[in-house]
Design a protein around this nucleic acid. Structure first.
Lengths: 242, 242
DNA sequence: TGTCCACGTAGACGATTGTATACCTGATGC
DNA sequence: GCATCAGGTATACAATCGTCTACGTGGACA
């Protein structure tokens, strides 16, 4: 009775091939929200119409637009998070080794390559899921407290993943776990803006990519400089220019 | 004919004391948008009702909600920008001097004090204009291209101001104007998130303030480390812990 | 004194909205 | 073989919406 929003039963049961109503509604909502307006301000009838369904069908699957939004975010959010983790693991298996900063020049060069790889990864994902990204960020600062919390949770989760992965690959000297997490959260949030620019200014994509890399390196440089500045003197020449 | 949105004539002409319709509408829209929904999804009648005016009065002053939004942003945006500039000038007159980094320890300490002052400034402003800030950030990633551009322009303008002011106060070694501008833009954008946290988590305000200061210092550390790492070795002890 | 004009009001229009009630259908379980 | 039920439909209703046309002010200005 109070238990609503039937948690995606349709997906569990069907072989997940047929678009089956619920999916149609989510896709319609995504398309409409990306091109027209915010999720919360979408019309129930509008979405149903765009999905080719009867308005009342909406109630069969969702009780709210918050409900629908959370469902969409669960789906795409876990996809993003898993994609990022997997892709972050890939270079570690291929060519990367644990980079010990006892050889600063080499370690920092690897850090740069890793930053470049990660930035490209995120921006590619954003390009591939333009609609979902647009809507998601809209909700990040949007009206619905439910969606805001959910989006913030997703971003924080990504930051936690990134921290763990980085701890496995990089061995930063004297940078604590908490410090690294704080840096990761800052990076994730900044990537929100870089991604926006990337989508909105296709002609500047190469520049934006470089700016994002540079920002990340700057943060790590700063973190290291605060703890072990002597390591940086040797690697000065390696820092990318402007 | 095509020239619409009469640019605030009502304000110019009246002694600016009487709330005079146009102002009432803007205030009503601000309150409703802050508590209810996005600007673009507001009802024309709803706003007029909340302002105690006839629905059609809206047309006398604005043609759009974009129109109203831009008017509000002009008003509050210039207030914010001027307030920040003025407040950034204040410490320079009182106690601060041009900090030459030829004496690194002292210069970095001053940079830290300046970062603390600036962060406090922004967060105070956000607290004082909670509604406007909330609505503005909503529009930053919102549906209306007009409002998005306007908000992005405001943030970039603040970044430009900050760059100029910093160039006048700090003398960073070997950090070019463009680099400093890029850093300023990143800081401004990150402050959007810090401000959100600050408003949404009153119990963590002190922590958030410190995190923001630390982030800014980290960036400057990084920028300096990339150019003149030898300067940092001497100042290592001054960096704030965690 | 007469005439604009900016500002605000009044009433009405068709369109669209969210939601309630009722009916249909195919699969599932006993 | 029959009941149950999730998924989808049809119809209807009051409420709200944006916008149109028309009218009423008070002050500015000639």
């Amino acid at each position: 009775m109070a238990k609503n929003s039937d948690g995606g039963r349709g997906q569990d049961r069907t072989p997940e091939r047929v678009p089956s109503g619920r999916q149609k509604l989510m896709e319609a909502a995504l398309e409409l929200a990306a091109t027209t307006r915010s999720l919360a301000s979408l019309g129930l009838r509008e979405v149903a119409r765009h999905a080719g369904l009867n308005p009342n069908t909406f109630y069969r699957h969702f009780k709210d637009f918050d409900d629908l939004g959370v469902a969409m975010l669960d789906e795409l959010g876990t996809e993003l998070r898993a994609g990022l983790r997997e892709a972050r693991m890939r270079p570690a298996q291929e060519g990367f080794k644990l980079s010990d900063f006892s050889n600063p020049a080499e370690g920092l060069a690897q850090a740069q390559a890793l930053a470049r790889e990660s930035v490209g990864l995120v921006l590619d994902f954003v390009m591939d899921h333009r609609e979902a990204y647009t809507v998601g960020i809209r909700e990040l600062h949007g009206t619905s407290p439910v969606m805001r919390k959910a989006m913030q949770g997703l971003l924080d989760g990504i930051a936690v993943d990134m921290t763990e992965d980085l701890l496995g690959v990089l061995m930063l000297p004297a940078v604590s776990h908490e410090e690294l997490l704080a840096v990761a959260r800052v990076i994730v949030r900044q990537m929100v803006f870089f991604s926006m620019d990337y989508l909105e200014q296709p002609s500047r994509q190469a520049d934006i990519k470089r700016e994002a890399e540079r920002f990340i390196l700057l943060l790590f440089w700063g973190a290291i400089a605060a703890r072990a500045p002597e390591l940086l003197a040797a690697a000065k020449l390696k820092f990318p220019t402007i």
